[in-house]
């Protein structure tokens, strides 16, 4: 028999990404909750808390950080649980599509939806709070790598944790609880310097704090604001290191815990 070669992993991954996006944007609840929630929170909380320009910059930066973690960690985790529940994963497992392509598709989904979310949030910031966007290429480069690394690390952890959840109903709890707690420990709503030492250390173990810190370095009016960070500097090297480490931890966890279905084995 002829053995025509099967399509490549990357091209299949991108094709999955396109299909995932198509499905994602057709669901109104995704547009409301995932894409607009951070912008809405920014609007509400910002109106209460933001009294000066510098605060708007810092708050917007932290909200983008929290937002991409909501799409990657919570949103992606939920979507994997849903794929397990509705038979998507079972069907895919019966096809010659490699698992890596499935995952590439999910990363594409998270990347694009996070980008939409960040743009919406920045638009609210600019229109409502006179947010100033960075003008130097260097800042945007930092934005790009923090964004990318944050999305990948948090996506992997979200997928790994999705294996704990048995149903979409219970996934909402499994995924949202750590996310909400981390928002308080990571300087999104409360500055980390205002937290007791133990909580600050706890927050520093997880990616959210580092993603937010990276974004604050991008949106701060000038680098003097770094003194407001827990360490008194932006620590960009450490941001890369921690997010890189979580990416590796995430890969190992996904490899070990990923389940194609709720009943397999």
């Amino acid at each position: 028999m002829t053995t025509a070669t099967l399509p490549g992993t990357l091209s299949l991954g991108l094709s999955r990404g396109a299909t995932e996006l198509r499905e994602f944007f057709r669901q109104k609840e995704n547009l409301i909750f995932t894409i607009s929630l951070p912008a809405l929170l920014m609007l509400l909380l910002g109106t209460v808390y933001v009294k000066e320009a510098a605060a708007a910059q810092m708050f917007a930066a932290s909200m983008i950080g929290a937002g991409i973690i909501s799409t990657s960690f919570v949103g992606l985790g939920m979507s994997v649980v849903a794929d397990r529940e509705d038979g998507t994963l079972k069907r895919l497992r019966g096809t010659p599509m490699p698992f890596t392509s499935y995952f590439i598709g999910k990363i594409v989904l998270v990347f694009v939806s996070s980008l939409f979310e960040a743009v919406l949030l920045l638009a609210v910031g600019v229109l409502r709070f006179d947010l100033e966007l960075p003008t130097s290429a260097e800042k945007w480069l930092t934005f790009a790598w923090v964004f990318t690394l944050g999305v990948i690390a948090c996506s992997l952890i979200g997928v790994a944790l999705s294996s704990i959840a048995k149903s979409t109903r219970n996934a909402a709890g499994v995924l949202n609880l750590p996310y909400i707690v981390l928002q308080f420990l990571s300087g999104v709503f409360i500055m980390q310097t205002a937290l007791p030492e133990s909580l600050r250390t706890a927050g520093s173990l997880f990616p959210l704090k580092w993603v937010c810190q990276g974004f604050r370095s991008v949106f701060a009016l000038n680098d003097d604001y770094a003194v407001m960070e827990a360490a008194g500097s932006w620590e960009l090297g450490k941001v890369a290191l921690v997010l890189g480490a979580w990416t590796i931890v995430g890969l190992v966890l996904v490899g070990r815990t990923f389940r194609w279905s709720n009943t397999s084995r």
């Binding site: 399509p7 299949l12 499905e23 509705d86």
Partner: peptide, 24 residues
């Protein structure tokens, strides 16, 4: 599959065309 409800937001045509891409 026996009880799948996947591809709920894809049209029949989109789903079939998409799955065709997996094969040589």
């Amino acid at each position: 599959l026996q009880s799948a409800t996947d591809a709920a937001n894809l049209t029949v045509r989109e789903a079939v065309h998409h799955y065709a891409k997996y094969y040589a």
